[in-house]
Simulated scan of single mutants.
Amino acid sequence: MDMTTVQHQPPKALSRAQERKLMEYVEDHFLEITRNFKKRSDVSSTLQTLSSYLTATHTLMSIILQIPPVNPSGSLRVTLLLRLTGDALSAIPGYKPDVETLPTLLDWLNDLDRGWLAVLRSQVWDTKSRTGIDISGEDSSSAQIPLQSPTMSQTERTRLRSLIIGGTSTMEEWLVELDTGGQDYDLVLQTLGLQQGFDDLFAGTLAEMGSFSGIMNMPEGMTGTC
């Protein structure tokens, strides 16, 4: 995926009031999702199905990705997206896989992959294209200047790599439980046109982290759609 640079007003870090409001919103949603996931077998849960879980967490993903990639907000975006990634990759195998939901799941995972690419590249998240975009501003001499947040630390990259590798490995085992009517699940995925997508999970993020030499790698205006 090529990075795109557009002329746009440079993003601004969240104010303390905006950050506090955002954290309250995000924390409430994390708690609500966790609570309903734990009781997913109960009729009172709002997350009884994988589809409902993906919808709820997709909204949260979008909010997190829209945090401005400038100090000090950029670090908050990394922290929250790591938390969401860990929670989701652990929770998804807690549901029974079904053929009807797999395309939605793959779309969700691809959005997360593109989201991490945006974070790793310190890009602004564009909700329409669902990709990261380089934003250039102008200084007093009208020269273009890149707007960057601090790069992810080695610890954060190592944590992300561990989550992705562990999560995809668990998902491979989980997909074997797919009800395929006796057919090989790989054949079913091929028939659905999903085999390559699941084989290439997080390929973009892992490739981007590998490019780092020596490293193992609700404010106004935010919406809940990636």
Rank of each mutant, 00 (worst) to 15 (best):
T5H: 07
Q7E: 13
H8Q: 14
E24A: 13
E24W: 07
F30K: 04
T34W: 03
R35Y: 12
K38Q: 15
S41F: 09
T46M: 06
T46H: 09
L47W: 01
Q48C: 04
T49S: 15
S51V: 09
S52R: 14
Y53V: 00
A56H: 05
S62H: 09
I64R: 07
P69N: 12
P69V: 08
V70I: 01
N71C: 08
S73D: 08
S75F: 07
T79M: 06
L80T: 00
G86T: 11
A88V: 11
A88Y: 02
L89K: 03
S90P: 00
D98V: 08
L112T: 12
D113Q: 08
R121F: 01
K128R: 09
S142I: 08
A143T: 10
Q144G: 02
I145K: 15
P146K: 11
P146L: 08
M152Y: 00
S153V: 10
R157L: 02
T158K: 07
T158D: 06
R159Q: 15
R159Y: 05
R159D: 07
L160N: 07
L160E: 07
T170Y: 05
E172Y: 12
E172P: 03
V176Y: 12
D179Y: 03
Q195V: 06
F198C: 09
D200V: 05
L201F: 06
T205E: 08
G214C: 00
I215M: 12
M222W: 14
M222N: 05
